[in-house]
């Protein structure tokens, strides 16, 4: 019988202001469970390991196929998506905690607004709206499209910010994800027309210079995005932009 239950120790928190506490759950084992299906089991029957009734554990989820980033949490000490983490591959007891870089809303759910604000700050989009048809855009070399596609896999999950020692309450560093997005949109032939604006956003306080090259981000990224390559490439581009801005250039835009 003992083999047929899963033990989960979950760090819970009732509201953004209240203090966190741990609660243990025993969940009946089924084959091919992921962390989310185990959490769903708690939701179905919210009774903790002591047999007491409790509130169901709250978490966020959306796509269930590791493309939305909403279900990120710390599982056995490692930040990852709970949908793509299989129970069979985890050591027991399974410890679940909310990510520590973001404000906790409730239980395992965190507020990742700062990441979305960063995307707005660096203008991570391509402006094509206007009053008239602009016609087809310029073509993109296939080889470039291939590496840019890898960057486009970013799902703003927050795992890189969680692993980064320079993203914390003492620092205003924007984090790796947004830096890589600037590279993606600057690589696009139409997006390139607003290249300078994005680079200048990276040169504002809290920008690219907050990177200390610990390179944890590239190791933990669940999508395997070459984040440190992006950061180094943006280092080069922001430096060139800074020189152009200071000394002057007809190629600054």
């Amino acid at each position: 019988m003992a083999e047929n239950t899963i033990t989960m120790i979950i760090t819970r928190q009732d509201s953004p202001e209240s203090s966190p506490y741990e609660e243990t759950f025993k969940i009946p084992y089924r084959e091919n469970m992921n962390v989310i299906s185990a959490l769903m089991e708690i939701r179905r029957n919210p009774v903790n390991a002591n047999g007491e009734n409790t509130t169901p554990v709250y978490w966020e989820m959306n796509c269930l196929e590791e493309v939305c980033g909403a279900c990120s949490m710390i599982i056995n000490g490692q930040a990852r998506q709970s949908c793509a983490t299989l129970v069979d591959k985890l050591e027991q007891p399974i410890r679940l905690e909310p990510m520590s870089t973001f404000p906790v809303m409730r239980d395992l759910s965190v507020d990742r607004s700062r990441m979305f604000d960063s995307l707005k700050k660096v203008k991570a989009w391509i402006p094509i709206d206007g009053t008239h048809d602009l016609g087809p855009g310029p073509r993109m070399p296939e080889k470039k499209r291939q590496w840019a596609y890898e960057l486009s896999k970013c799902m703003t999950c927050g795992v890189c910010l969680e692993a980064c020692p320079n993203v914390n309450s003492n620092s205003d560093f924007i984090g790796p994800a947004a830096l890589s997005q600037v590279r993606l949109f600057n690589a696009h032939p139409t997006g390139e027309m607003n290249k300078g604006e994005r680079l200048e956003a990276l040169m504002e306080d809290g920008g690219i210079h907050g990177c200390g090259n610990s390179q944890n981000c590239v190791q933990v990224c669940p999508k395997g995005i070459p984040l440190t390559t992006s950061i180094a490439a943006m280092n080069r581009d922001t430096n060139i932009q800074a020189f152009k801005n200071f000394f002057g250039s007809d190629h600054v835009y």
């Binding site: 000490g77 020692p165 620092s171 090259n213 944890n216």
Partner: peptide, 18 residues
């Protein structure tokens, strides 16, 4: 201004960082 995390992320570059 750093939150050191070498215990959790024991990668070579993170060690060099610290």
């Amino acid at each position: 201004t750093v939150k050191y995390n070498n215990k959790r992320y024991s990668f070579f570059r993170n060690l060099m960082f610290t």
